[in-house]
């Protein structure tokens, strides 16, 4: 037990001692963490920025969706390592080598959720908006998007966890944020402390991001909480079982408080 404790203390000591090196801005744990956040968040943001207009187009022109979904699923089958290497001749060792493939993966995960979310807006809600004189754009922004938001955020949560974990793989092409800590400082030097610190920080970053998305969902859809309160657990479970998409069920994973469903 005490050896485990000593070992953990050693790992922690290494992390503290190597957190950052004043005067050498590219060395240490902190620069790698910031690089990881930069690569992951820009990939997620670009993926989201692509998924929403594409999803809208798929809902507006229905025939677009099946071929686009197939194409996107084939893309998902392409391993990230292979994509990073395929990007190398075009983007070299710039951030884009990591961001382009990761943004595509985010798009792959998000597109079905955006389409399902927009499609499951109840018809009477849409008709009510039309009856109130909402034009297509205003209807989209103030009625359809808010109703679809929980499913879109559920997809975003899955995509962000996957992306944050996958950024590390980019270390094999010389990028990769905390992955570089794991590979260069840890594995190549046969030293376990940087690997542990890297893994822990990647998982922590994923959990913090997930919590932020849950928080965003609560702030953006306050009516969901209001509706839920009077219902019993059983009624909720029944409602969840009747929900048409599996995407919604993802939302009930890590961030949801226990005993709420």
């Amino acid at each position: 037990m005490s050896t485990t404790l000593d070992w953990a203390e050693g790992v922690l000591g290494w992390a503290v001692a190597n957190w950052s090196h004043p005067g050498e801005p590219d060395r240490g744990v902190l620069p790698r963490l910031l690089e990881h956040i930069r690569l992951a968040y820009s990939s997620i943001a670009i993926g989201l920025a692509l998924a929403i207009p594409l999803g809208l187009a798929c809902v507006r022109w229905r025939i677009l969706y099946p071929p686009l979904l197939t194409g996107v699923n084939v893309l998902y089958a392409v391993p990230s390592i292979a994509l990073f290497f395929l990007m190398l001749p075009y983007t070299g060792f710039s951030d884009w080598t990591a961001i382009v493939p990761l943004a595509l993966y985010t798009l792959v995960i998000l597109l079905p959720n955006v389409v399902d979310g927009l499609r499951q807006v109840p018809d009477h809600v849409r008709q009510a908006a039309v009856a109130m004189g909402f034009g297509p754009l205003r209807r989209l922004i103030s009625v359809e998007t808010p109703v679809a938001l929980p499913i879109i955020i559920a997809g975003l949560r899955v995509a962000s966890v996957a992306t944050i974990s996958m950024v590390s793989v980019a270390s094999l092409v010389g990028l990769g944020g905390l992955g570089r800590l794991i590979l260069s400082d840890g594995f190549r030097r046969q030293f376990d402390a940087p690997i542990i610190v890297g893994i822990v920080l990647v998982v922590a970053l994923a959990l913090v991001t997930d919590a932020l998305l849950v928080l965003a969902q609560r702030l953006l859809t306050p009516w969901a909480r209001r509706d839920r309160r009077p219902r019993t657990g059983r009624a909720l479970r029944r409602a969840a079982a009747a929900a048409p998409t599996g995407a919604e069920t993802i939302g009930s994973t890590a961030g949801a408080p226990p005993g709420k469903g």
Binding site: V161, A162, I164, S165, S168, V169, S171, L172, L178, G179, I182, L183, G186, F187, Q190, F191, D192, I195, I196, G198, I199, V202, V203, A206, L207, D210, T253, A254
Partner: peptide, 18 residues
Amino acid sequence: ANLARALPTIGVLFLIVL
């Protein structure tokens, strides 16, 4: 499962190799 999903595979691999 969500926690495991966040685990960076190369980190796990290199750690077990060490």
